[in-house]
């Protein structure tokens, strides 16, 4: 990656939507929205609720399926963004076989597809997502199956709502993952008190935004102490300081997510701030920030 920044899956579409609003040279990779084998309609409306310090969403992984992704979205990315900016493709499935099948299809895609992010932690779908991410033994099976299906680098995106992250990190190591991503959204709920009904059609959703940032810092910190796998840190990155905090906690790279909705140019500001911080503190490269906690 030419910079330590990417986009958080689900906040950046298929990579082309913000092409005129953000200078992509600040990104080291683009992470696109979750893909499974077949098209998936997602949840009913409403799908989001704004809350102080963040956003609760229950999109439900609406997506075109791997065929349309490869036939339309990937070539469109090449047309708009080019082949030089690596794409990380987030995948999910309703079964372990489906995870492996999607990964196999992506293996043959070629540039710009550069890595796979395995989503085992979406709180908004019943069939897939967190079913596979809340049991370390099942998680290891998913990672092994995907590992066997592709030679592409594997990043496993973990759920934050577990009592101890370490067994899940071990499962990623055992399964042959190349990196882990922390954190996905935190299960949450919003109620319309006048109507006495849940705001979201799915009843519950996942919280993202500023409010989740300290949770992400803590989990990245815990994971970093337990593994040598690189960590892609995310969760409430709005300013350079948020990214630097995650890096000091142990992240090697950072994803900008919900902040993009408020300011599409967030990643540009974050990168500029990281460079300024490194200069001010005598770091020759952002790589030196990883785990550089003094105490």
């Amino acid at each position: 990656m030419r910079t330590p920044l990417t986009t958080a899956s689900g906040t950046f579409g298929y990579g082309t939507e913000y092409a005129a609003a953000l200078d992509y040279s600040c990104l080291g990779a683009v992470t696109v929205k979750g893909i499974r084998m077949s098209p998936w309609p997602g949840n009913g409306m409403p799908r989001h609720a704004e809350v102080p310090g963040g956003l609760v969403n229950a999109i439900g992984l609406q997506g075109p399926g791997i065929d349309d992704f490869l036939a339309y979205h990937l070539p469109h990315y090449v047309d708009v963004v080019g082949s030089d900016l690596p794409m990380i493709v987030n995948i999910w499935g309703g079964s372990i076989d489906e995870y492996a099948a999607v990964a196999a299809r992506l293996s043959d895609a070629g540039a710009p597809v550069a890595a796979i992010e395995v989503n085992v932690s979406c709180p908004n779908v019943k069939a897939g997502g967190h079913t596979f991410g809340h049991d370390p033994a099942v998680l290891a099976q998913v990672v092994k199956a995907v590992r066997a299906a592709t030679a592409l680098p594997l990043i496993v995106k973990l759920a934050p709502n577990v009592p101890d992250i370490v067994p899940y990190v071990r499962a990623c190591e055992d399964g042959g993952a190349d990196a882990i991503a922390l954190i996905n959204t935190i299960p949450a709920m919003v109620i319309d008190i006048e109507r006495r009904r849940p705001v979201l059609a799915n009843r519950t959703g996942g919280l993202s935004g500023r409010a989740v940032h300290p949770v992400a810092v803590k989990l990245v910190h815990d994971a970093y102490r337990a593994t040598t796998l690189p960590i892609l840190g995310m969760g409430g990155v709005y300013e350079a300081a948020d990214a630097i905090e995650l890096m000091l906690a142990g992240a090697t790279a950072i994803a900008v997510g919900t902040a993009t909705f408020t300011d599409p140019a967030t990643a540009e500001r974050v990168l500029g701030g990281i460079v300024e911080y490194c200069t001010r503190h005598g770091f020759s490269s952002a790589c030196e920030l990883t785990g550089a906690l003094d105490g």
Binding site: G13, A21, P41, M45, P46, H48, L55, Q62, F261
Partner: peptide
């Protein structure tokens, strides 16, 4: 008129069920 999040098609929060070009419904 729908509440929107990203406004650019990236987040899939502002869905309306419509008939697609092939006549099949889609979000």
């Amino acid at each position: 008129d729908r509440h929107m999040v990203c406004g650019v098609g990236a987040c899939f929060a502002c869905i309306q069920r419509v008939k697609g070009p092939d006549g099949r419904p889609f979000n």
